Simulated scan of single mutants.
Amino acid sequence: MKEMILKKPIVSCWIIFAVLILVHGFEAIVLRMDETILGENCINKLFGIVVLFIVLKLINWKWTDIGFAREGLIKSLCIGFGLAIIAFTVSYFVEISILRSQGHDISFGIFTTGFSLTGEAEVHTGISFILMCVFFNIVNVLMEEGTFRGLFYKLTEKNYSMRFALLFQAILFGIWHIVTPLHNLIDGDINFLTFVVLGIGYIILAGLMGIKWGMLYKMTGNLYAGMADHFFNNCFATNLLHVTTETGIDEMMIIRVIIAQLLSFVIVTIVFSRQKSCGLQWKNALRQNP
């Protein structure tokens, strides 16, 4: 089993991914845990952590081997949260400016909701819901970053280039998010054409986020910066801090997320490219002056 996983990383990753997304889809579409008092599809994330633990045992890897390093925790968390705060400050500003230009009265609300591409979400108030939101989003980033940027990326990079590994895990991460528009299609909230458009758009957006968090992994040497940025996006920007108007809640959430993610993607890409360029220049200098 160990040799198969390590020697055929693409096939192995697809098999693991297929198991995970089947559980993810079953929970979201059949069990509908996000419609319960928990307000989250949490079973697939807990299941994913168990699968990650089992796979690491099979290949004799430690958690530190996939990015859960002991060093750099605080620094990387500050980088991730700082990046998210900058990006979402800009996106909230743009969102509010657009809404005000349309004549809306703007206010902020702190409460929990279930994310929906159609803008329909049940509101939950109370400290218990906020604490559950924080807890389940911590579980979420542990599972998704550990699986996609950790396990899938590291397995693939051992046999292929860094660029291929970044793209491969990002493609899987994008497909992972097709469950959300599929859920809306099955419920009749959207038609098939809208599902195709939203599905493609969501796969591209999630894929870019996957590339960004993969680059953060390469830049910092651990998963914590990507986890912090991922957590802020999922927990605060889409589930706790809401923009309300007289006509609804978070009517432009998707615009908010797109602006923030594209901005942070550009920032990380620029820094990553410069860091990579400086690294190559340093290596060339060492070769010329041994």
Rank of each mutant, 00 (worst) to 15 (best):
G150H: 06
K75Y: 13
L280E: 15
M162I: 11
I255W: 15
T244Y: 06
K75I: 03
T125P: 03
T269K: 09
V19F: 14
D105G: 04
F111T: 01
T147H: 00
G199S: 09
A84N: 13
K62L: 00
H230N: 13
C133E: 00
G114V: 13
W213V: 02
G72W: 00
E3N: 15
I10G: 00
S97Q: 07
C278R: 15
K8P: 01
I190K: 04
S101E: 11
L131W: 06
I49R: 07
C42Q: 09
I171F: 06
L117H: 08
L6V: 06
R32D: 08
Y202E: 09
N239A: 10
T238R: 10
S97E: 07
K158R: 15
M4F: 15
I204P: 11
R32C: 02
W282S: 09
N191P: 00
I59C: 11
I29A: 03
R149C: 02
I96R: 04
I267L: 14
V19M: 12
G201R: 04
T245I: 13
V94R: 08
I79T: 12
I5Y: 10
I79D: 04
G82W: 11
A121N: 13
I186G: 01
L182D: 00
F108R: 01
S101R: 02
L167F: 14
V50I: 13
I16E: 05
D189C: 13
F192I: 14
T244P: 10
H177N: 07
T220W: 02
I267W: 03
E120L: 05
T64G: 12
V94I: 15
V50Q: 10
F272C: 05
M219C: 06
F231Q: 08
S116H: 07
I85E: 10
L99M: 14
W176V: 04
E3W: 05
L216P: 03
L172C: 09
L280V: 10
E71P: 02
V134K: 00
L117I: 14
I255M: 15
N289H: 11
C13L: 01
H124D: 07
C42Y: 07
M1D: 06
K158D: 12
Q169G: 04
Y217C: 03
L198E: 10
E35F: 08
L193W: 13
N184Y: 11
G109R: 12
P9M: 09
S12I: 09
V19G: 14
I203S: 02
L216T: 03
L142R: 03
I37D: 04
I110E: 00
P290K: 08
Q281F: 11
N234C: 09
H242E: 01
L172A: 00
G39I: 02
I106G: 03
K75C: 03
F135R: 05
F148V: 06
